[in-house]
């Protein structure tokens, strides 16, 4: 067994162990406090844990399937996220072709370029080509009502759901000396740190949360949850240095940046939900809401993590 595979197995066993622990806690809580399924918070907790099993299972399958599996998984995530996003924005009939192009051209081409490892074009395809061509497609219909608003929203949707999200699988294209063949572990590192930060903020908040941190944006987020969650997720990230090309200190600093970006990304996405008058982005994941509700912190941290790693560690 190569070291990459054995590290992956160790990680999976660790995550599986944590989920097993979470499931048992959830089971005991339900037996004690909500035997008839009437306690909403506990039912939601258990729905979330179940969904975590499913998500870990899917990611594990993608990792086993290799590069193509990872790309397909994130292409699907981008598709579902873009669908949630576009559902909530202002569109008019004149935007039909621009939106169709976003789904059926921009998204596949973006992921194709990653597959072909055409980093130079990938990095500018949506920010330059899609940015310029989509308003052109829309303007040909001659409908000027809310035009700036409409083209901005579609561009934002593409940037967040496709471009930013695809920086997770883009980690596979980095060439780090002494780390060959292990890039998939960088994805595992990013996903584990971001998601554990979300979960730990939730746990710290539930246990010790007193002071609301952003009552207008996200009433459930507290200062205690934020500090506790970020600190513990940073420590967790530092302790995972052995799966990364980083030293423990570097892994800790990276984790701190990842968790902070994730936290503020969550706030930004909450603000958009408030603006559109919805509580969740969708209903794809039982207990969590939509896919974007789970992915919001990943999308904001992935590009920064990618570029920091690329600048300091990668040859390409």
């Amino acid at each position: 067994m190569s070291t990459t595979t054995s590290d992956m197995v160790t990680l999976l066993l660790g995550v599986g162990g944590i989920l097993l622990f979470a499931s048992s806690v959830g089971y005991v809580l339900q037996r004690k406090l909500s035997p008839d399924g009437s306690n909403g918070a506990i039912e939601n907790l258990n729905a979330r844990i179940k969904a975590w099993w499913a998500m870990v299972f899917l990611i594990a399958i993608a990792f086993i399937a290799g590069r193509v599996g990872v790309l397909l998984l994130f292409a699907f995530c981008s598709f579902a996220a873009l669908r949630e996003f576009i559902t909530l924005i202002n569109t008019r009939r004149a935007d039909h072709w621009a939106i169709a192009a976003a789904f059926f051209l921009a998204l596949p081409i973006n992921y194709y370029l990653l597959w072909a490892e055409e980093y130079g074009i990938y990095a500018i395809f949506i920010p330059v080509y899609a940015f310029l061509l989509m308003p052109i497609i829309a303007v040909l219909r001659g409908d000027t009502q809310n035009f700036l608003l409409r083209i901005s929203e579609v561009q934002w949707a593409l940037m967040i759901c496709v471009f930013c999200a695809s920086h997770v699988p883009a980690l596979l294209t980095l060439q780090i000396p002494g780390y060959e063949g292990r890039n998939v572990l960088l994805i595992a590192f990013l996903v584990i740190v971001v998601q554990s930060s979300d979960v730990l903020q939730y746990v710290w908040g539930k246990l010790f949360g007193r002071t609301k941190i952003a009552p207008k944006l996200s009433p459930s987020k507290t200062v205690e949850g934020f500090v506790g969650g970020v600190a513990s997720a940073t420590l967790l990230g530092a302790s995972l240095w052995w799966i990364t090309p980083f030293t423990p200190l570097q892994a800790g600093v990276m984790s701190l940046i990842i968790t902070l970006m994730g936290f503020f990304g969550g706030l930004v996405m909450s603000a958009i939900k408030r603006d559109r008058g919805v509580k969740d982005w969708g209903h794809l994941i039982e207990g969590h809401g939509g896919l974007i509700d789970r992915l919001d912190s990943v999308v904001f941290s992935a590009p920064i993590f990618f570029h920091l790693t690329r600048y300091w560690w990668s040859l390409t």
């Binding site: 039909h96 939106i99 969708g282």
Partner: peptide, 18 residues
């Protein structure tokens, strides 16, 4: 709700919306 936005009259390519 929303299906009219998926494929408005006169279009033949549907767009994915919830």
């Amino acid at each position: 709700n929303n299906l009219n936005r998926v494929m408005p009259k006169g279009e033949f390519v549907p767009i994915p919306l919830i």
